[in-house]
Every structure is written in structure tokens, then in C-alpha cells.
Amino acid sequence: MAKNIRPRIRVPKNVAKGKVFEIKTLVSHKMETGQRKNKKTGKIIPRKIINKFVCKYNGETVFSADWHPAVSANPYMSFHTTATESGEIEMIWTDDDGATYLKKAKINVT
């Protein structure tokens, strides 16, 4: 799965201004902890996790999280933010190897 990372998100299309709404996210990732050993060679499998998640609302960071090795594979996360104006919500997951996975959604504030 890791070769083709395709996040799933759920953002409401229309929200009333000033209302608190929920954003749900799911991303496919092995979240290799760096503490397991290869059973045959005995060598440690290098750590490879998503270490940072950022959510931007019209360019402004509204939510961010640092993730550590105890986070499960295929991590799910939900959080709330307040509807201020129509625009774009952008989510960025940053991998240990520097790769980033992006997902955007439009939101209409009424």
C-alpha cells in the first residue's frame, strides 16, 4: 500500500458561518516503528512513519499534530475547526523520508 498513498478525507461542502465543524481524515501508511527486527537477518527495520500532519484553511494553519511511533498503521484522525470564510482546506502529511502527501477540499461558507 505504501507505494500508492491516497488519503481519504471528509469535509462538509456547506457550513454556516461561525459554526464549528468536523474534518475526518484517513491515510494509508505502514507506520513502521523502527523497533521491529527482520526475523531472518536480525537487523532492525528502519523507522518510517508519518511524523507530522498539518491542516491549512485558506493558507492558515488551523490544526497540526506531531506523530510518534506508537501511532497505528493507516491512521485515522478527526478534529474540529470554525467556519470563517469560503475557500480551500489543505491537508499535508509529512513522511520520515521527507515525502509529503496532499489532499485538498473546497468549502462553502454561507
Binding site: 500500500m1 481519504r8 478525507i9 494509508s28
Partner: peptide, 11 residues
């Protein structure tokens, strides 16, 4: 949206 197996369905 919470069900991680849906990632495989997407794939």
C-alpha cells in the same frame, strides 16, 4: 471514512 479497509477498496 474511519474504516481503514476502505483504503484498499479505493486502491
Amino acid at each position: 471514512i474511519m474504516n481503514p479497509a476502505m483504503l484498499w477498496v479505493d486502491q
